[in-house]
Design a protein around this nucleic acid. Sequence first.
DNA 1: CAGTCTCA
DNA 2: GGAG
Length: 222
Amino acid sequence: MPVELAPGLIHHPGRLDAAARRRLAADVAAVLAAAPPVTPRMPRTGKPFSVRMSNCGPLGWVSDRDGYRYQPHHPETGAPWPAMPAAVLEAWEDLSGHTAPPEACLINLYAPGTRMGLHQDRDEADLSAPVLSLSLGAPALFRYGGLRRSDPTRSIRLMAGDALVMGGPSRLIHHGVDRILPAGDLLGAAEDPLPGILPAGGRCNLTLRRVTQPGAVSGVQA
DNA sequence: CAGTCTCA
DNA sequence: GGAG
C-alpha cells in the first residue's frame, strides 16, 4: 500500500513483484548493451560522479564540464538513446497519473559505496509531471527534504521493486542517496539485476521524467 | 549556476 | 546530518 511521505511524495513499497523486476532488469540490460553506462562529471570542475548513468527514451540527462542538459544522443557513442522499453512505459502509466508519456528515463547505476548528494531534479521545462523512480537490486538509504536545501530532511529505505513518485508540491524537493545497503541487510535474497554490468550488491534506479513543455516545438529546448 | 566533495 |  502506498505511503504519502509528504504532499505529492508517494512511496509504493514492493510495487514491482519478482517477475516484474526481472522483466524490467532484462529490458534495462538490453538498453545498456546499446547505450553503455557513462561516468558523469560536475560542471566546471570535471569531478566525476560515483554513480554511472545511461538513458533511454527520446531524451537523456547528461552532465559534463559544459553543464547539465537533456540531449537526444549518447555523449560517447553519438547514437540516439534506445527506445523506452515496454516495462518502463507500463510503470509510468500505472503510477504517474500523467497522460503524456515519459520523454526521458535516466538509469543510475550504484555500485556499493556509491552516493548521490542532495539535489533537485530541475532541468525539465515541464514541472507539472511527476518524476517516477523505480528501484532494482540492493536497498538504499534515500534522503529527502524540502524545497530549500536547508529544509529538514528524513531518510527511508528504498528496496528492490519500490516505486517513488515525486510530484505536485514535492516535484522540486531535494533528495539523494546516502548509501547503498548490504543486500542481506533485510530479509529477501540478494538480487543482482544486471550481472556483468553492475557489481554484485549494487543498485539500479530508473527515473522517468517529462522534459519538454506541452506546446514546445521539436528541436527547441526550453 | 548545478546532482561534486570534505569537514565537523 | 548540516554547512560550505
